[in-house]
């Protein structure tokens, strides 16, 4: 199966600082790639670069064509990006936010809202939501975007346990429907549950891509996070016994 998006020797620089360099990877339909790494390593920046929202050097090809050759509106039919919604003061409601995401797609706002447990919040202004409710709204907005590629920046952040599980199940079901998904996660158990591939970005500018079952090993992750892995973090790692 041909790759939806392909990266060759990609370097991301922000504010004059090179975050990481030399990343090569390819994402195919029905695959989940999880991005792991410490704070500030460049995980969110990688998603922004793939969404065409910041520039990156190297080659990024979407369906075999350079990402930069796409018109911004054309990209919205191919890529959906989910990130933290900044505070908004203008009274925009949850329903209006979802309708903006749905655009002309004709996707059903109400049933999508119901799947993320926010049907009762549709008339509420975004500014009055809790962080978790806002996150569920953003996940609903993403679900209304029927694009082949999804980019998610910490989708389980701020969610309670029930909705974290719900979110991970949703990612799995979307993968099974053939969606290509790249997501930044901090919870290793969640990463283990959904990842087909991993991208590990360290704080020294290195980036590594590979199959999850090969990269998910305790020594590598201990080095990556510069911290001993706790039982919570390692419970699902195959060689967990080695890091106790």
């Amino acid at each position: 199966m041909s790759a939806i998006i392909k990266l060759a020797d990609v370097t991301v620089t922000r504010g004059g600082k090179t975050l990481f360099s030399g990343l090569n990877c390819a994402m195919r339909a029905g695959e989940v790639t999880v991005v792991l790494g410490p704070n500030g390593a460049g995980k969110s920046s990688l998603l922004l670069a793939l969404a065409g929202l910041i520039s990156a050097s190297g080659t990024i090809e979407l369906h075999g064509k350079p990402l930069s050759a796409y018109h911004r509106m054309e990209l919205t039919t191919q890529i959906a990006w989910q990130g933290d919604l900044p505070p908004t003061e203008f009274g925009l409601t949850v329903r209006q936010r979802l309708e903006l995401a749905a655009g002309e797609s004709g996707e059903d706002v109400e049933s999508t809202a119901a799947t993320m447990d926010i049907a009762a919040l549709l008339q509420r202004p975004l500014g009055e939501l809790s962080s978790g409710e806002r996150q569920r709204t953003e996940l609903s907005a993403l679900m209304l975007r029927d694009t082949p590629l999804w980019l998610l920046d910490e989708p389980t952040a701020h969610l309670d346990l029930k909705h974290q599980i719900h979110c991970i199940q949703m990612l799995k079901s979307q993968r099974d429907k053939g969606r290509a998904i790249m997501t930044v996660l901090h919870d290793l158990q969640q990463a283990m549950a959904v990842a087909d591939h991993l991208i590990l970005i360290d704080s020294k500018g290195g980036a590594e891509y590979g199959a999850a079952h090969k990269l998910f090993e305790s020594r590598k992750l201990t080095e990556l996070f510069d911290a001993p892995l706790t039982q919570q973090g390692c419970a699902l790692i195959p060689d967990y016994g080695d890091c106790k």
């Binding site: 922004l48 969404a51 929202l53 911004r72 509106m73 990209l75 919205t76 959906a80 990006w81 990130g83 919604l85 900044p86 908004t88 203008f90 925009l92 209006q96 936010r97 903006l100 995401a101 655009g103």
Partner: peptide, 17 residues
């Protein structure tokens, strides 16, 4: 303008220049 209410980044992600 409606999309810009979501912030610059989100507006761009929804196709606004």
């Amino acid at each position: 303008l409606d999309k810009l209410l979501l912030g610059e980044r989100h507006a761009e992600a929804l196709g606004v220049d």
